[in-house]
Design a protein around this nucleic acid. Structure first.
Lengths: 335, 335
DNA sequence: CTGTTAGCGCCTTCAA
DNA sequence: TTGAAGGCGCTAACAG
């Protein structure tokens, strides 16, 4: 069996190829009788229009480029799930770009994305900086290809449609809960590398700490478990710093901290109360279970795709910053 | 700035479009001087060939379809990382299909994949059954599009190139280690739903148990933490079944079991020795750290992509089953 | 080494 | 409601 083309269908159905094209793309413009006959032949031949020819002729690809830093991050993977399900609704295909490769500059990759003829771009990279933001904005303007940022914040500007949660508020709220619980020595555990998203969590933490007249303590460490374990051991060993509350910017960092403290004889949550961020599977697989901010990553992905589709269709999204609701989940590390 | 075409480049460089095409695809066939001039114009105009036109004319897409069941599974995500890095080496793009959507039959999706003109298909779905296998094989034959299975086993046939580890051997080895350690009541924790890959782990377990003259105990449970926790509590509560060794088909199931047992007052590894499967991040984030079979998922992804590329280039892979080496990592749950 | 030309498979006016 | 015809941007013989 060789791949059927529109000609094969037209011939077998006794119509011109234009009619076949119409029954597929503008069925209302074809007489019902003809349409049914054509559809039947399409079915018989297992015909599917060649995506390239279609894209070339129509200048639309029904394809969206998804740019991610690293698939193995739980939040990224889950967002992609959300994107995939939503994209299906519109019959859109996903073309995936993983930035993990050091050999490729992001500028080079974006040129490729443009060449791929994607109708839109979904960008999810919480480490975005000014240069990257401007580059994306330039692409959007030069090539008229809509871009939506998913869980990617650049709060200094609002040229690109963005879907996320209010990280500042979440950081503030988690810290407040610790304060209201009577905790006095509250630490924030964040990444050594500065990310926009984590900076916001930190700012929220600082606001709450300041309001309460407490001293702020920010620990910048690695996301790598073996590294941060050593770090936590140094900082908080039995005889060490006083600490009775912690907000970590990632679940995995929170869990690693909890493990280290328990090994040092501290009681969780009695001695130290801990909040993580994201509500990944790690949060449920640790002992005690981790309390954390629940970031609806699946919804963020889906919403981002929905907005992108809207932009592609020419209906501009008025609201550039789209903030989704978050919850704080209380589990074993805080009560 | 509007997107530049090959004509713009040809005009500005004072050559024909064929020459531009050549400097891009067969540079050795163009005089160096001309080539440099063309390249310069390409650079200036930021020209990138339209992927659709190129694909249509050349009947090759430089694109590979990646089919996954669910991105949020750690092993899947990591395999995709491996695929992405390897694909970059060949300048191949990835088009992603997530089977998560219940509304879409797999047959329908495969038709879409074919229509997408992908040069090859990478299929990663450890739950594959006979129907699916035959469907894939038919696609490969009918449309002459190579397919490689990554971490996806269908051992009853060998028409499709497959990359995986020896799950039977791994299951056998883990069980043997427990036996050699003197454990007598060794359980296998597996999924209720039967997967090929898990069946093999189970078969390896059974072989070792039989050789040692012990009694086999297979518990089929859910991958869902909240469900299997209840299940483990019922089965193994303090007064309950005797158990001193466990091999679980997934890290997450192993960790959930460990947590449940510790809450019931059992000592790990003294009372019960536990092995997981995969070496995901969960294995390092739990307390005690999980001993497990290390499945090199990143390598599996990369290797699968490499073989696919080879098939696409017409160099058939002789060896259909390609088994990668695995290790067993000893951590806190066994020593 | 370079230019000319004929498609690749489909969409989309424009006529009929 | 349908068909004819001209591209979409590029590759790949074939000439020169």
């Amino acid at each position: 069996m060789v791949k059927a083309t529109i000609y094969n269908v037209a011939l077998k159905a006794g119509v011109s190829l234009a009619t076949v094209s119409r029954t597929l793309n503008n069925p209302e413009k074809v007489k019902q009788e003809t349409r049914e006959r054509v559809l039947k032949v399409i079915e018989e031949l297992g015909y599917k229009p060649n995506a390239f020819a279609k894209g070339l002729a129509s200048r639309k690809s029904t394809t969206v480029a998804v740019i991610v830093p690293d698939m193995s991050r739980a939040s990224i993977a889950e967002m992609v799930n959300g994107v995939a399900v939503e994209a299906r609704k519109y019959q859109y295909s996903l073309i995936l770009y993983v930035l993990k490769d050091e050999n490729l500059s992001e500028a080079e990759m974006l040129k490729e994305v443009v060449a791929s003829q994607a109708d839109g771009i979904l960008y999810m990279n919480d480490e975005i900086n000014e240069d990257q933001y401007e580059m994306l904005n330039k692409i959007q303007e030069d090539y008229k290809v809509p871009i939506v940022l998913a869980n990617t914040l650049y709060p200094y500007d609002n040229k690109l449609v963005t879907v996320c949660i209010d990280y500042f508020k979440a950081g503030y709220e988690a810290t407040r809960r610790l304060i209201d619980d009577g905790r006095k020595h509250i630490f924030m555990l964040t990444t050594a590398r500065k990310y926009m998203v984590n900076d916001l969590k930190e700012a929220g933490y600082l606001k709450a700490i300041k309001e309460a007249g407490l001293e702020n303590n920010i620990v910048r460490t690695s996301g790598d478990i073996s590294v941060n374990t050593v770090h936590f051991n140094e900082l908080f060993k039995e005889s060490g710093k006083r600490v009775d509350g912690v907000v970590a910017v990632r679940d995995s960092i929170a869990v690693s901290f909890v493990n280290t403290m328990i090994k040092n004889g501290r009681k969780i949550p009695k001695d130290i109360s801990v909040y993580g961020f994201q509500n990944t599977k790690y949060a449920s697989l640790c002992r005690p279970k981790l309390s954390c901010v629940d970031v609806p990553v699946l919804d963020i992905g889906a919403k981002a795709m929905a907005y992108l589709k809207q932009e592609i269709d020419g209906n501009h999204v008025e609201q550039k910053f789209n903030v989704l609701h978050h919850d704080i989940i209380e589990r074993g590390t805080t009560k």
